[in-house]
């Protein structure tokens, strides 16, 4: 088990280096001069332009720039935004809890609905429920997030007026962030109705963000369950006289979870990517929206740093998934 963990960590380091290189090169392939963009409509003199290019190090050869960047990273410095002049890490950490809150709620919703739906669909294979779930999953998976989000806003916020259109909490409430998670902070603030307001703001973005993972989890659970239910050990479990709930809910599910957990782990990565769209639609002040804004402003250090931090988080989540995987699957845990 210990060696297994070491091996997994060993893979992460070169992957991370690869990401730094890709992030560094791709952002420089984008057309557009960051210094000119900063100047805006007024423009600037040749001399001032050159000075600013030198100040940010854009005048040096690309390889040197990369070397300097790696050196910075090694010292925990993810760069400074050329727009706000604040450290990228600091900006990221301020906005990150909003994304965590949204993604966490979305993945919890997706698992809570997708897992049982897939299980029941597999057990009642070919039934009306099965067809409904699978059609729903295919629809959910094929829907453009942007369109789906707008549709929900029009219906629930516009026509019915049940939920707010954007933001994390009503402007009526103000309190200092403690954890950065609005649900927790609003409870801690003790203000009447703050928690309920936070929940109402969270519902639509969560549903939109959960749609694709939910569809993927439901489909994966169903197919994994179908495969497992045909195994010999399920017959053994039934031959013991165990109840159908114990046979499917314990003996089959435990085995079916192995591929499902892998998918859930990959979906966390997808969520961070999906959050970019969802956060933009709902003006959710998270890192997805921040990344999009940074790209439009040609804020190289922010995009680069943000990309790296997101990549690092996805890798850490995947490491955790691998560990969970080993916990559930004894065949991995016990390989010598």
């Amino acid at each position: 088990m210990f060696i297994y963990v070491l091996k997994k960590i060993g893979v992460i380091i070169p992957t991370f280096l690869g990401v730094t290189l890709v992030a560094f090169i791709f952002i420089r392939l984008l057309p557009g001069d960051p210094v000119l963009l900063m100047a805006g409509e007024r423009g600037m003199t040749e001399e001032r332009h050159a000075r600013m290019m030198a100040e940010f190090g854009f005048d040096k050869p690309i390889l040197v720039q990369y070397g300097l960047y790696l050196n910075q990273l090694a010292h925990g410095d993810f760069g400074t935004s050329i727009i706000t002049r604040k450290p990228v890490l600091q900006e990221f950490m301020t906005l990150f809890p909003a994304t965590v809150e949204l993604s966490l709620c979305a993945i919890i919703l997706a698992v809570l609905l997708g897992l049982p739906a897939g299980m029941i669909a597999a057990v009642k294979r070919g039934s009306f429920f099965d067809h409904t779930v699978m059609t729903g999953a295919l629809t959910g998976y094929s829907m453009p997030i942007f369109w789906w989000g707008l549709l929900l806003i029009i219906f629930f916020s516009g026509i019915l007026g049940w939920t707010p259109v954007s933001g994390r909490i009503s402007l009526l409430y103000y309190f200092e962030p403690v954890t950065g998670l609005m649900l927790v902070d609003s409870l801690l603030s003790g203000q009447d109705g703050a928690f309920w307001s936070a929940i109402r703001h969270l519902i639509l973005p969560t549903v939109v963000l959960a749609t694709i993972p939910l569809a993927v989890i439901a489909r994966q659970t169903r197919s994994a369950m179908l495969e497992v239910l045909g195994e010999d050990y399920i017959r053994t479990a039934r031959a013991k006289g165990l109840s159908p709930i114990r046979v499917t809910g314990l003996h089959a599910l435990r085995n079916a979870l192995i591929p499902v957990i892998t998918v859930v782990g990959l979906q966390v990565g997808v969520l961070f990517a999906g959050a970019i769209l969802t956060e933009t639609i709902f003006s959710w002040p998270g890192i997805g929206k921040w990344m999009v804004d940074s790209i439009f402003r040609r804020d190289y250090p922010s995009v680069q740093g943000g990309l790296l931090l997101i990549a690092a988080i996805v890798m850490i989540v995947n490491l955790l998934v691998d560990l969970l995987y080993a916990l559930i699957n004894p065949r991995i845990r016990h390989t010598e």
């Binding site: 053994t236 006289g241 085995n255 699957n329 004894p330």
Partner: peptide, 25 residues
Amino acid sequence: KRRIIGREITMIFQEPMSSLNPCFT
């Protein structure tokens, strides 16, 4: 029937390796 199956009538199968659940001790 489940009170009889697994208690008074039991069965063993052809493929012992795949008849045991790999996830449980």
